[in-house]
Amino acid sequence: MSAWSQLLGCLYKDLLIGWRGRARLIGLGAYALVLLLLFAFAIGADPVALREHAPAYVWLAVLSASTLLLVQSFQQEVEGGALEGLLLLPTDPFALYYGKAIANLLILTLLTLLSFPIAAILYDVSLLGAPLALTGVVVLGCAGLAAPGTLYAALTARTQAQQLLLPVLLFPLVVPPMLAVVRATSLCVAGDPMGQLSSWVGLLGVFDILYWSLGGYLFARLVEE
């Protein structure tokens, strides 16, 4: 089997697992929704502040929900010894990593795209300013989360207290892409009179390229052990 067909096979497997466990994905969406409501409670009835910071709240909710998704994504592989089985087939570690990272990217993108209309209703934000640019920024932002997240989920999969360790390691790492995606999203939502969007998207793109290119190599070394 070529590397491409292995990658597509792994992607199909992970999406199928996601689809069969869709109750968990619905739970993930509910978790993000609860967080969006909690942010509104924490700030209080201040519509201006809520509108201004809506992109940050959405991305914080997605970041928090992503850890649950990422922990799950490797738990199933480790529990049944499926990862060892796949590697013994032998499956290319690159195909395994990129298949899972792309599956996580698709699920996170779906979650984020569903969270934005809810945030628009809750925080009274208009998303109609630049919908295409917003979608592009969402995909890039989720890519900045999915690649290091998948790597760290694999790294912590066999450790004690994975649920604790994953956010401790992942959150500091994704601060630069999160910062860039929150700024870029704000510019898509509130308008970009100074033309700053391209520089934030550029910064986000640099981190995405860095994480996606390093992730496969580091994952391969990790599973060799």
Partner: peptide, 26 residues
């Protein structure tokens, strides 16, 4: 923290090397 939670020496070395390289991005 990772080094204290992984007990197998080879795996700990590899995991902390990966985490160090990723953290160095900052």
């Amino acid at each position: 923290v990772l080094r204290h939670l992984v007990h197998r020496p080879e795996r700990r070395a590899m995991a902390s090397a990966v985490a160090t390289i990723a953290s160095f991005a900052d």
